Amino acid sequence: MPRYTVHVRGEWLAVPCQDAQLTVGWLGREAVRRYIKNKPDNGGFASVDNVSFLVRRCKGLGLLDHEDPLEVALEDNEFVEVVIEGDAMSSDFIPSQPEGVYLYSKYREPEKYIALDGDSLTTEDLVNLGKGHYKIKLTPTAEKKVQNSREVIESIVKEKLVSFSLCITQFFL
């Protein structure tokens, strides 16, 4: 089943399509319907029927004809933009570069480091790592623990020990 990722007013929506014979216009209406459904204020619209829009490819910004079948106009998993009449495109939205689609136009390399020591990582630290707020570095103690663990595993392999409990006991010493 083809699916498309559609950008509507700052939101990215995944829109599966059961039938590739459906049109670009259907895709735009379905994306707007999903946008309205998921916004607390319905995105400011009474219904999808009240919304006039254009649909364009993100890569190259090509304007698409509402009547074209999806299977002819788009590739599976393609990114498209629904531009609602009267809206201005967000200044920080960069739909594509010639070599591909880039969703994260404002990415900056984090300047702060978080030291992993093997003992003190909190849930909050983990969330902030996932958000890209920190770079990671190991403390000398953690590096030593990794090296010791490696040596234990190498000795088990070398000696062809089969005792799993021995491995676990030595690993955590």
Score class of each variant (00 low, 15 high):
N38D: 03
W12E: 05
L74M: 04
D117L: 03
F53I: 06
E109M: 11
Y104P: 02
V101K: 13
D76R: 11
C58R: 10
P16H: 10
S105L: 01
P140W: 07
E71H: 01
P16T: 14
G118D: 13
V127K: 14
E85N: 01
Q18P: 14
E99C: 12
T122V: 05
R9D: 08
K135M: 13
K39N: 12
W12V: 02
W12G: 01
R150H: 12
R33G: 09
V162D: 06
T122S: 15
V48E: 13
A14P: 08
D117M: 03
A73K: 00
N148H: 12
G44F: 03
A14Y: 04
Y35M: 05
H133M: 12
V51H: 13
D19V: 01
V157Y: 00
V101F: 11
D92W: 07
P16G: 14
F45C: 08
L61T: 10
S149H: 03
E143P: 02
W26S: 07
E143F: 03
L64S: 12
E99D: 15
F172M: 10
V80F: 07
S47W: 03
V6Y: 01
T139L: 15
K112H: 15
D76G: 10
Y35A: 00
Q18H: 09
A88R: 11
E124C: 03
E151T: 10
K135Y: 08
V127F: 13
Y102W: 06
A88D: 11
D65V: 14
L13M: 02
S155C: 05
D92I: 04
D87P: 00
D49P: 02
P95W: 12
K37R: 13
W26E: 06
P98V: 07
T169V: 09
A31L: 04
L173F: 07
V32T: 11
F79C: 12
V80R: 00
G118S: 14
